[in-house]
Protein backbone atom coordinates (compact mmCIF):
# COMPACT_ATOMS: atom_id res chain seq x y z
CA UNK A 1 0.00 0.00 0.00
CA UNK A 2 1.36 3.27 -1.10
CA UNK A 3 1.29 6.20 1.13
CA UNK A 4 1.60 9.67 -0.18
CA UNK A 5 2.95 12.35 2.02
CA UNK A 6 2.60 15.95 1.12
CA UNK A 7 5.53 18.07 1.81
CA UNK A 8 4.67 20.50 4.50
CA UNK A 9 5.17 24.07 3.53
CA UNK A 10 7.80 26.02 5.32
CA UNK A 11 6.88 28.84 7.65
CA UNK A 12 5.67 31.76 5.67
CA UNK A 13 6.58 35.33 6.49
CA UNK A 14 3.04 36.55 5.87
CA UNK A 15 0.82 34.78 8.39
CA UNK A 16 -2.87 35.63 8.60
CA UNK A 17 -5.08 34.54 11.46
CA UNK A 18 -8.40 32.97 10.52
CA UNK A 19 -10.85 35.07 12.48
CA UNK A 20 -14.11 34.13 10.77
CA UNK A 21 -14.86 31.42 13.34
CA UNK A 22 -13.97 33.85 16.12
CA UNK A 23 -16.51 36.31 14.76
CA UNK A 24 -19.11 33.52 14.77
CA UNK A 25 -18.39 32.72 18.43
CA UNK A 26 -18.59 36.39 19.38
CA UNK A 27 -21.88 36.73 17.54
CA UNK A 28 -23.40 33.78 19.47
CA UNK A 29 -22.08 35.17 22.77
CA UNK A 30 -23.52 38.58 22.02
CA UNK A 31 -26.95 37.16 21.15
CA UNK A 32 -26.99 35.08 24.36
CA UNK A 33 -25.96 38.04 26.52
CA UNK A 34 -28.46 40.39 24.91
CA UNK A 35 -31.22 37.83 25.50
CA UNK A 36 -30.41 37.56 29.22
CA UNK A 37 -29.98 41.36 29.35
CA UNK A 38 -33.58 41.90 28.32
CA UNK A 39 -35.14 39.18 30.51
CA UNK A 40 -34.91 41.16 33.77
CA UNK A 41 -38.27 42.88 33.65
CA UNK A 42 -38.27 44.13 37.22
CA UNK A 43 -35.76 46.85 37.82
CA UNK A 44 -34.70 46.75 41.44
CA UNK A 45 -31.52 48.24 42.73
CA UNK A 46 -30.79 47.35 46.32
CA UNK A 47 -28.27 48.71 48.78
CA UNK A 48 -25.04 46.80 49.32
CA UNK A 49 -25.83 45.52 52.81
CA UNK A 50 -29.16 44.00 51.78
CA UNK A 51 -29.47 40.28 51.00
CA UNK A 52 -32.82 39.29 49.61
CA UNK A 53 -34.35 35.89 50.39
CA UNK A 54 -34.44 33.24 47.70
CA UNK A 55 -37.58 31.53 46.47
CA UNK A 56 -39.27 29.98 43.47
CA UNK A 57 -41.29 32.86 42.09
CA UNK A 58 -42.69 34.12 38.85
CA UNK A 59 -41.03 37.00 37.08
CA UNK A 60 -43.17 39.64 35.50
CA UNK A 61 -43.30 43.28 34.75
CA UNK A 62 -44.37 45.07 37.92
CA UNK A 63 -44.15 48.78 38.42
CA UNK A 64 -45.21 49.85 41.89
CA UNK A 65 -44.09 51.79 44.92
CA UNK A 66 -40.84 50.30 46.21
CA UNK A 67 -40.19 49.93 49.93
CA UNK A 68 -36.76 48.72 50.96
CA UNK A 69 -36.06 47.49 54.49
CA UNK A 70 -32.45 46.91 55.40
CA UNK A 71 -30.86 46.47 58.80
CA UNK A 72 -30.08 50.20 58.96
CA UNK A 73 -32.75 52.12 57.08
CA UNK A 74 -36.20 52.03 55.51
CA UNK A 75 -36.27 53.51 52.02
CA UNK A 76 -39.30 54.59 50.06
CA UNK A 77 -38.61 54.84 46.33
CA UNK A 78 -34.91 54.99 47.13
CA UNK A 79 -35.24 57.84 49.63
CA UNK A 80 -34.47 57.14 53.30
CA UNK A 81 -37.58 57.73 55.41
CA UNK A 82 -36.79 56.01 58.72
CA UNK A 83 -33.65 54.89 60.50
CA UNK A 84 -33.64 51.30 61.78
CA UNK A 85 -32.01 50.59 65.15
CA UNK A 86 -32.20 47.10 66.61
CA UNK A 87 -34.87 46.34 64.04
CA UNK A 88 -37.05 49.17 65.32
CA UNK A 89 -37.86 52.42 63.57
CA UNK A 90 -39.92 55.57 63.90
CA UNK A 91 -43.36 54.57 62.66
CA UNK A 92 -44.60 58.14 62.37
CA UNK A 93 -42.06 59.21 59.77
CA UNK A 94 -42.74 56.11 57.68
CA UNK A 95 -46.53 56.60 57.92
CA UNK A 96 -46.02 60.25 56.92
CA UNK A 97 -43.99 59.22 53.90
CA UNK A 98 -46.62 56.68 52.82
CA UNK A 99 -49.38 59.27 53.30
CA UNK A 100 -47.44 61.83 51.25
CA UNK A 101 -46.90 59.35 48.44
CA UNK A 102 -50.57 58.36 48.50
CA UNK A 103 -51.68 61.99 48.36
CA UNK A 104 -49.39 62.57 45.41
CA UNK A 105 -50.86 59.55 43.60
CA UNK A 106 -54.43 60.66 44.34
CA UNK A 107 -53.72 64.19 43.13
CA UNK A 108 -52.29 62.74 39.92
CA UNK A 109 -55.37 60.52 39.51
CA UNK A 110 -57.64 63.57 39.90
CA UNK A 111 -55.90 65.60 37.24
CA UNK A 112 -55.51 62.74 34.77
CA UNK A 113 -58.42 60.32 34.29
CA UNK A 114 -56.10 57.74 32.76
CA UNK A 115 -54.11 57.42 35.99
CA UNK A 116 -55.44 55.43 38.96
CA UNK A 117 -54.12 55.46 42.51
CA UNK A 118 -52.17 52.20 42.68
CA UNK A 119 -52.49 50.01 45.78
CA UNK A 120 -49.45 47.90 44.94
CA UNK A 121 -46.25 47.94 46.92
CA UNK A 122 -43.07 46.01 46.15
CA UNK A 123 -41.32 45.11 49.37
CA UNK A 124 -37.60 44.50 49.21
CA UNK A 125 -36.41 43.34 52.61
CA UNK A 126 -33.26 41.81 54.03
CA UNK A 127 -33.57 38.09 54.76
CA UNK A 128 -32.47 38.56 58.38
CA UNK A 129 -35.09 41.16 59.30
CA UNK A 130 -37.52 39.84 61.93
CA UNK A 131 -41.18 39.53 61.02
CA UNK A 132 -42.14 42.20 63.57
CA UNK A 133 -40.33 44.88 61.50
CA UNK A 134 -41.91 43.62 58.28
CA UNK A 135 -45.33 43.65 59.94
CA UNK A 136 -44.90 47.25 61.11
CA UNK A 137 -43.96 48.44 57.63
CA UNK A 138 -46.78 46.53 55.96
CA UNK A 139 -49.33 47.74 58.52
CA UNK A 140 -48.20 51.31 57.92
CA UNK A 141 -48.56 50.82 54.15
CA UNK A 142 -51.97 49.15 54.52
CA UNK A 143 -53.34 51.97 56.67
CA UNK A 144 -52.47 54.38 53.86
CA UNK A 145 -54.25 52.38 51.17
CA UNK A 146 -51.42 50.18 49.92
CA UNK A 147 -52.94 46.74 50.32
CA UNK A 148 -51.54 44.75 47.40
CA UNK A 149 -48.14 43.51 48.52
CA UNK A 150 -45.50 42.08 46.22
CA UNK A 151 -42.51 40.55 47.95
CA UNK A 152 -39.29 40.74 45.96
CA UNK A 153 -37.09 37.65 46.09
CA UNK A 154 -34.11 36.26 44.22
CA UNK A 155 -35.42 33.63 41.86
CA UNK A 156 -34.15 30.11 42.28
CA UNK A 157 -36.10 28.57 39.38
Amino acid sequence: MKKSFLKSKGPSDQMSIQITSMADIFMILLVFLLKSYGSGLIEISTSKDLTMPQAVAESGSVDALKVEISEKVVLLEGKPVAEVRNFEFDGKSLAGAFAGERKRQQALAKTDSGVKADARVIMIADRNIPYSTIKSVLASAASNGYTDFKLAVVQTN
Partner: peptide
Protein backbone atom coordinates in the same frame (compact mmCIF):
# COMPACT_ATOMS: atom_id res chain seq x y z
CA UNK B 1 -14.18 41.67 16.20
CA UNK B 2 -13.13 44.87 17.98
CA UNK B 3 -16.74 46.07 18.11
CA UNK B 4 -17.92 42.67 19.36
CA UNK B 5 -15.31 42.60 22.12
CA UNK B 6 -16.36 46.03 23.38
CA UNK B 7 -20.07 45.15 23.13
CA UNK B 8 -19.64 41.81 24.95
CA UNK B 9 -17.63 43.44 27.73
CA UNK B 10 -20.28 46.16 28.16
CA UNK B 11 -23.21 43.73 28.16
CA UNK B 12 -21.47 41.35 30.57
CA UNK B 13 -20.84 44.17 33.04
CA UNK B 14 -24.39 45.51 32.91
CA UNK B 15 -26.26 42.19 32.89
CA UNK B 16 -27.78 41.09 36.18
CA UNK B 17 -27.50 37.32 36.25
CA UNK B 18 -29.56 37.01 39.45
CA UNK B 19 -33.11 37.63 38.36
CA UNK B 20 -35.70 39.10 40.67
CA UNK B 21 -39.00 37.35 41.23
CA UNK B 22 -42.21 38.51 42.87
CA UNK B 23 -44.32 36.70 45.44
CA UNK B 24 -47.88 37.96 45.60
CA UNK B 25 -49.04 38.54 49.14
CA UNK B 26 -52.23 40.41 49.88
CA UNK B 27 -53.09 41.01 53.50
Amino acid sequence: IDCFTVLIAFVMISTAFASIGILDAGI
